[in-house]
Every structure is written in C-alpha cells, then in structure tokens.
Amino acid sequence: MNWITNFLFSSVGKKLIMSLTGLFLCLFLVVHMAGNLVLLDPNGARAFNEYAYFMTTFPPIKVASIFTMLGIAFHIIDGIVLSLQNQKSRPTKYAASKAGKSSSWASRNMGLLGVIIFFFIIIHLKSFWFEMKFGSVPYVEYDGNKVKDLHTIVMAAFKSPLYVLFYLISLAAISFHLWHGFQSAFRSLGFVHNKYTPIIKILGYIIAIGVPFGFALQPIAAYLIANGII
C-alpha cells in the first residue's frame, strides 16, 4: 500500500489530485451556471424555488453535492500544500524578472486567484447554502407543495450594488483561474496530443469565458429585478 501514498504525495501525484478535482469542479460550475439561468426570468420566482427544492432534495444531487464539497476541500488543501512547497523551492526572488515574457499572468497567479475564489465560496455558501439549510427562510406554497422561498433571499442579497460587484470580481478571478487551469489539468494528467490539445485549449477558453459570463448575468439580472428596473 506504501506505493499509493508515495505516488499521491509525489509532485506528479499531487498535481494529479489537483487536476482531477479541478476538472470535476469545472463540470460542477457548468451545471450550476446553466441551472441557475432560471434567475434571468423576471417572473421566475416559482421556477427558481422549485428548481432549488429539487436540487436540495433529489438524492443523486445530494450525493453529487457531497462529492463537490470534498472536491473543493481536496483542491484547496492540495493547492495550499503545492503553493507552499513551490515557494520553498525558490526562497530568494530575483531582483529583476521578465517572467511576463515567457508565461501568462494567470498561470503565475493560480494561488492568488484560488484565494480570491476561496473567500468567494465562503461568502457565497454563507449567503445562500447556509441560509437554505439552517437559516429561517420563509416558505411559499405552490399547488399545495410547501417549498422554501430562496428566490426572495437571492433578490434581497443582490439588491445591493456592492454585493453584485463582489460577485463580478470573484467571477473574473474564476475566469482567469480556468483560462490557465482547464488546459493545464490535461497536461498534468499527461494528456497532450497533436489533434486534441488544440481542441482542449479552445474548449478551455470557451469555459473560462462562458461560465463566468453566464454566472455574471444572474446577479446583474437579480439586481435589475430586485430594484424594479426590469
């Protein structure tokens, strides 16, 4: 069994965990973003609440959410371990460095971007997930079915322009993280191929822009709806 720990704690093994959890989280983001597009409908309170009810009660989704939490935890812990080790490998910095000539900003700042995303996740979970589970969310009744009125909570939160701005900044961080991260994960997994690597790169850029863009529409729409603009 020793080989398993040796393997997973090696530099390649740690990046394997990073890439698998990272790609899994990408998949989660795509689904999460697409599902929440219901918010764009100004009369979508019922649709959104029923969607939220489904997502919090349907057993397979509940299992998937546990995996997502674990994935985030492993990704973060592994990310911290890797970043600290990498810093230790270069204790003295260069007086003059032209790192920008040979690598992208996003690729050099995955840790910093991760920290921003981390704080976002904490605040995001506190505002909605924690409220939904443990908070005092009012109930609404649809055809005799009592469900929690998360829509009202969401609208109340995004009424504040500052809160919307915080979301937009965090989404920009996710965009940069995935701009480098998506294709990097395939390299970490050892997958480079003349035919498929260019496709993976393009897919990565589509995800890095499309997912945060789709998400960004939601707080903006909620802001406009909550403030009676649309």
């Binding site: 390649v12 990046k15 394997l16 080790q85 230790k88 040979s102 690729s107 390299r187 480079v192």
Partner: peptide
C-alpha cells in the same frame, strides 16, 4: 525542486527549445 504548474516559462527560456510536451509524457 518545485512541482510543475504548466506555465510554459521553461520551454520559452530553454536554449535548446525542449518542449513541455515532454513534461506531459513524464507525468
């Protein structure tokens, strides 16, 4: 030595133009 973040800086600076495709192969 640190681990690889796939930034590609090594390939860009290598005086012999060694490709980072080798890193994926090593992984």
């Amino acid at each position: 030595f640190g681990s690889c973040t796939n930034t590609g800086a090594c390939e860009a600076e290598c005086p012999k133009g060694i490709s980072i495709t080798n890193i994926a192969r090593m992984n």
